[in-house]
Design a protein around this nucleic acid. Structure first.
Lengths: 118, 118
DNA sequence: ATAATAGTTCGAAGATTCTCGAAAGATCAA
DNA sequence: TTGATCTTTCGAGAATCTTCGAACTATTAT
């Protein structure tokens, strides 16, 4: 037996902006979202091939709970897709804007503390 | 004597998207940014009239260090403004997009956990 | 100089987050 | 049913965040 794997998602109208921004504020998750936007639905393993499984689940769950991605079980795999339309209808232009300002993978590991007095 | 109050700001090119998103992911700070976008430069006290001073300083410092706002001392006060142009040149459309998807002050205190199975 | 008013720094407590191993659950193939 | 493969849950440790009082610094007015 065993109940098939199901996933709870917030309704579109319940997606909260601060939560979405928080979800996107983590480099690992932002990178996941970038991949999803680029390639469409993906197997969760392809989203983070090098991550421990439990870490992967943690991040995909957070993305799902914040309304950023839709998750469905397919066999033993876990297929993940961006909720582009839902996000667009709720926060028009947000995903596109965020991703366009994000140069792939490089540029990580900021030190800050930099900057002048102006 | 005593060195006048000065504030360190990251250079425009060093503003990091994840950090900006994180700064905006806190409802209190997002509300501050909304006010700044609406009214322009503001006295820090007007940004959070009900907050303890140290809490206010904490949030304004985080916004400054992440490159979202510019801070300058004016007498004993602390004037804060959005770095609109810098943000625009770095992440075109981001601030406008975020704020347009944010309905002022209401709509806070989400419960989540809601949502169906889809 | 003294008092009053702002803002900053420091330290601490509590809450969240992140990471990840171990154990358990779900699916598929023999 | 057994084994292989994926995912999820649980728990714990480390790191970060948030909040805020107390003490301190800076600036202005008297």
């Amino acid at each position: 037996m065993s109940a098939a794997r199901t996933y709870v998602h917030p309704d579109t109208e319940d997606i909260s902006l601060p939560r979405v921004l928080f979800a996107l504020s983590e480099p690992l998750r932002l990178e996941m979202v970038r991949k999803l936007a680029e390639r469409g639905e993906m197997d969760s393993l392809d989203l983070g091939p090098d991550l421990p499984r439990s870490t992967l689940t943690h991040h995909t769950s957070l993305l799902r709970e914040s309304g950023v991605v839709f998750v469905r079980a397919e066999g033993r795999k876990c297929m993940i897709s961006l909720r582009e339309q839902d996000l667009e209808s709720r926060f028009s232009g947000l995903v596109e804007t965020v991703l366009s300002g994000y140069e792939s993978d490089a540029d990580q590991g900021h030190d800050d503390r930099a900057g002048g007095e102006r």
